[in-house]
Structure formats: structure tokens, C-alpha cells
Computed example of a mutant assay.
Amino acid sequence: MRTAAIDCGTNSIRLLIADVDGGVLTDVVRLMRVVRLGEGVDATGRLSDAALARTFAAAEEYATLIERHGSPPVRFVATSASRDAENRQVFVDGIRARLGVEPEVISGDEEARLSFNGAVSVLATARDETVLVIDLGGGSTEFVAGTMDGLIAARSTNMGCVRYTERFLQDDPPTPEQIEAMDAEIARLMDEAAAQVPLERITKIVGVAGSVTTVTAHALGLPEYQAERIHGAELPISTVSSAASDLLHMPRSAKAALPYMHPGRVDVIGAGALIWRAIVERVAAVTDGRVTTAVTSEHDILDGIALSVAERDG
């Protein structure tokens, strides 16, 4: 059956129209628009008028595409920014008016489940492996451990590339003091996550979402953004760490000139890179050398949403 999935996060809103057959997705349309819905939410607690206008414009574009491709059933999932905003009803009403569907402002646990299902659906994973999926978003980062038989544990943390850029990394490039303060907060939240998610049992770490894929593109030295090379890339932890550090310390002008850098990610990739570096280094340390590489997946919560529609309506 054909399904339509929309993932509206803190930084971007994405559409996937896909045909689903036996749990396998075939893309019809896959699009991303950077709308920065969560701009300023960490400080004000509200979605700004400008951010809402950008998001509604993208929703209108997506509504046209969904109709053009047969008006399949739609699931619209909204994550961290809209969870945090006191005026989220304005967002809900605006999306319903444009797409005819109620946006689901999902919990962190549901976000984690969908991310895990989407990430592992297209990766070759042994049944006895314990996989940690990291979904590094604009406002939150999900830690999800599981096997091919299902989830073991999940924890959603309020750290993300937009939230932490606004909170910590004000200078270009950021100062050592800013990096140190952000690193300390990441460590604190990872301690909380580790109390719930058994990081020491992990045998494979998989990263999803734009910060992770951009760090991977940088590590690979790509001449442009090439999803087919990024997806499934397995890199040594030391390589990931080095690439992340490079992006963290790079001035804005140099990041903007990178051929694989999305313009909407330039301002926030430093924070995303620092979060990803801290996570992979922590997992490598606590697994006593068992985890020495990190895998990148181009498939994530968006794929999980599409699969959930097929399960619900198929």
C-alpha cells in the first residue's frame, strides 16, 4: 500500500511518500525543508510567528504533493519543539487546516520506537546483536537499544543541535569555555540516559538524522551530498571523532563552503557534531573496545512513521 509520513522536528520538516510491501519501503517522494520550527523555543517556550509561517508554507507544499500522488493515508508526527511550546495548539490547528490530519505531538518514547524501527529496517543486523540507535535532532536526542526482536530500553534527552547552539555556542567559532560547558551538560545527560539504557551491552551503534549524516559526509570527504555513500557507512570511532571536532572548530564561512553542507544546517552543525562525538566516544569507552566503529543510516523516524501507517491501515 502507499503511505505518506511527515516528520516535523525542531530544525526540519520532512515528507516521505512510499509504497510499502511486506515491511519494505520503496520511495515515491522524499523531501526535506529546513524551517527551524524550534528557533528560540528553548529561551521563550513559544513557537515564533516566523517559524510557524515557514512550517505552514512547507505543509502546504507537502499537501499538494500528497494529493498529486493519490492522497494516501497520512501520519504527521511532531517532536521536540512542539512538545516544549506553550502555544503548540496554534501549530496543531494550522497543520490540520492545511493537511486535513491531526498532528501527533508524540512522546520521547514513541519517537525512540519509531526511530529504531526505521533505522534497523534497512540495515544488515545479526539477530543476536544489541544495537544502539542514536537519533540526534534539533531539540532532542534519543538513545534506543534493541535487537531485531524488539526494543530493550529507550531514553529521550533534551539535547539537540538547535537547542544547544542557542544555549551554549554563541561565538564563531565557539570558544573553549563554551565547548567545555556544553560537553559537561552532554555528559550529565548521557549519565541519565545510561541509567536507563544499557550502553555497556551494546555491540553496534547506529546514528541517524542530519547532524550524523553531515559528520559522515565530512569524514568521507564527499564532493557533494551523496546519500547512497553515506547510508550504511561504517567508520572507526576515531575517524568520526576527528571529523566532528573539525566541524566544531570550523568558522561559519568554511562550513558554508563545504559541498555537502545543507544551508539550513550551517549554524547548528557544530553543536550536532559535538553531541555525536561525545556519544560515540562514551560508547566505545564503556564497551571495553567491543564497539570500535559507528554506522550511519539515512533511514530513521520518517521510515518508521511510514511503516506504522502501513501497520495501522494495511
Rank of each mutant, 00 (worst) to 15 (best):
A63R: 04
E192A: 14
I279W: 04
A306M: 08
A53H: 14
A112L: 00
V212Q: 01
L52D: 11
G38T: 03
A124K: 10
V101Y: 02
L189Y: 14
Q196T: 14
L31A: 10
T55I: 10
K204H: 12
D84G: 03
D300Y: 08
T141N: 12
D172N: 15
M32G: 12
P223N: 00
T3M: 03
A193E: 13
H231M: 04
V120K: 13
T147D: 08
E281V: 08
I95L: 14
L189C: 05
D267G: 08
V120T: 13
Y260R: 02
M261V: 09
T64E: 13
R88M: 06
I237V: 10
G45A: 12
I301C: 01
S241E: 01
V215A: 07
L220V: 03
D135A: 10
R252P: 09
D27S: 13
Y260D: 01
R127C: 07
S308T: 11
A278G: 09
E311A: 15
I237H: 10
E86T: 15
L220H: 09
A285M: 12
A5I: 12
A306N: 06
T213C: 08
V77Y: 01
T147A: 01
V240W: 13
V212S: 04
A124D: 14
T165W: 00
R98G: 05
V131C: 02
L169C: 13
V215P: 00
M159T: 11
P259T: 01
K255Y: 02
M1E: 12
I179V: 15
A209R: 02
V206H: 09
M261E: 09
I134Y: 03
R46W: 14
V206G: 10
A78N: 07
I106W: 11
R98V: 07
S107N: 00
I152L: 12
A193Y: 12
T203C: 12
E166G: 09
T203E: 04
T213I: 13
G232E: 11
F56K: 02
S156G: 01
V34C: 06
F143A: 05
D42K: 12
T55G: 11
F143V: 05
V131W: 05
A4I: 12
D27K: 11
M1S: 15
F56D: 04
M190Q: 11
L99Y: 02
A294C: 09
